[in-house]
Amino acid sequence: MTHLTPYSALAGGLLIGLSASLLLWLNGRIAGISGIARQLIWGERRESAWRAAFLLGLIAGAAVCYAIARALFHVDLTPHARPGFPPVLLILAGLATGYGTALGHGCTSGHGVCGLARFSRRSAVATGVFLATAIVTTFFVRHIPGLQ
């Protein structure tokens, strides 16, 4: 990240809040993405339609934003992996993230967005653990020789 983007961050935050609020108000469900994805795969089939629609909406919304940014503002939003970063560490990080969301009974969207908005103490603790773990992990990966 080389520059501050307050308007796109504000717009993204508003859209996340709006979508989480609408899912709660209209469907009575918390927008915990890991839980929605897990239940789509292993949950009850009668609940799969809204879960699939929600997840497809996330992907489609990102694709639309990417197309608009690229067409109107000539912005390259293509994610770039860190050069020289071992792919095995990316795979291990993904597996650790999946395990952590199962262990914490939720992810950053469920706890950090929806749980904190509902003043959940459990979500506040979980979000603090997420942030502390991210800070420590980033320190090790960026500053410990041999992990770079």
Rank of each mutant, 00 (worst) to 15 (best):
A67W: 12
V64D: 03
L23S: 02
C114K: 04
S109C: 02
A53C: 04
S123R: 03
T108M: 11
W25G: 04
R29F: 00
A67D: 06
H105A: 14
A81H: 03
N27A: 10
S19C: 11
A117H: 13
V113Y: 05
L40W: 09
G110T: 02
I33A: 09
W50G: 01
R29K: 15
G43E: 00
G106W: 01
I59D: 07
C65Q: 01
S48D: 15
I30G: 08
Y66E: 14
L92V: 09
W25C: 10
E44C: 08
S19T: 15
R46F: 07
R29M: 01
T97D: 03
A31K: 00
H111R: 07
S34D: 01
Y99W: 15
I59L: 14
Q39T: 03
A96Q: 10
A117T: 12
L56P: 04
L77W: 13
G57I: 01
R29W: 05
F73H: 14
A53L: 11
I68H: 09
L40R: 07
A124W: 11
P83S: 08
Y66F: 14
L77N: 03
E44Q: 13
A102G: 04
F119R: 15
I33M: 00
G28V: 07
L72G: 12
G100P: 11
Y99R: 10
A69E: 11
A67S: 11
D76S: 03
G84V: 03
G94T: 05
R122S: 08
R118E: 06
W50Q: 10
G104H: 14
R82V: 14
L40V: 08
T97N: 13
C114M: 11
G106F: 02
V113I: 13
Y66H: 15
T78W: 07
G98E: 03
S109M: 10
A126R: 11
A20S: 12
R46A: 09
G35Q: 00
R121M: 09
L89S: 09
T78R: 12
R118P: 00
V113E: 00
I36Y: 05
A81R: 14
A96I: 04
R46K: 12
A81N: 14
S109W: 09
L92F: 11
A96V: 11
V88L: 15
V113F: 01
A62N: 09
S109T: 07
G98W: 00
W25F: 10
R45G: 05
G84C: 02
V75Y: 13
I33P: 02
Q39A: 03
L92I: 15
H74L: 15
